[in-house]
Amino acid sequence: MKWITNKTVQSLLHHSTFVLFAIVLTVFGLLSQSFFSFQNLINVLTQASSLGIIATGMTFVLLTAGIDLSVGSIMFLAGVISSKMVVAGFPLWMAFSVVLAVGILFGLMNGFLVVRAKIVPFIVTLATFYMGRGLGLFLSETRAINLPDSFLKIGSTQFFGIPFPIIAFVCVVVIGHLLLTKTVFGKQVYAVGHSTLKSKKAGIKVNGILLKAYLICGLCASIGGLVAISQLGAVSPTFGLQSEFMAIAAAVLGGTSLFGGKGTVFPGTLVGVLLVQCIQNGLVMVNADPYLYPLITGGVIFLVVLIDSLRHLQQQKLKRWGIHQK
């Protein structure tokens, strides 16, 4: 009997994010009637789309045991460049292509410095964080830019009643998921994340994998930036600040390890992002003090990481005693 309960507890702890997700949904569902409405579901997904896209890219980098602190700057740069171009009269498609190119360029730069100059990802992306934001501030002359209506239209365009940001979000998650689970590249990402040395020995082109991971992350950051400003309608000089931390937190909430080789885009990162967004949305619905949002979000993330660590400690103990959890 003791073991049965223990196993149940174990599996509950194992899926602590899901359990917390369920608790959050229940609590807000009880507190607010409209929380479970279709419209609110659409709202949550729309609001989550930008973070979700960025976190999907971040998952690739985290899986290789890397980190990308520059995504917030890439977002900012994406916002500034596209709005500047549109305001100057360039067509939307051209602005978008330039922005995506900038995201890819930053990703490539990060990847190149990691694999060729062999500098630690944390430092590489810390440096490109500064450079990206500096460049963005230069282009925007440190002023907020208001976007023309054509931009906002995109954010509110609907296909079959589903807003454009959600479609972009779903596309990115699906592509990310397929890349990780259905392609050789995806499997090699996991291998490289476990050990670059072993991967090299196994004949994997490690540098290529790392480069692609950072490229994907940079690209996702620029898409995420576009999606975000299409909803906001303006780019302020603080736009995208600390997004890197939210993206990392969401991915980690979804079970991605900071040490590489472990994690998924679907369901992992998606659930992490939705959990964060549901908390925010729920707090709005129950009219909580807006200043409480970061407090509660931080608290929930702390809790998940704590539970995960305690479970890990417990598992190690059991393992040493020769009791394997199958």
Binding site: A65, V120, L135, G136, F138, T142
Partner: peptide, 28 residues
């Protein structure tokens, strides 16, 4: 101050090229 940020970023990279933070960059 945006130029300062760009210069700071470059200096971090240059310093990293010269010191400890690249030795173990490819974990074993």
């Amino acid at each position: 101050f945006f130029l300062i940020m760009i210069v700071k970023g470059s200096v971090i990279l240059i310093a990293a090229l010269l010191n400890a933070n690249r030795e173990k960059s490819l974990r074993t």
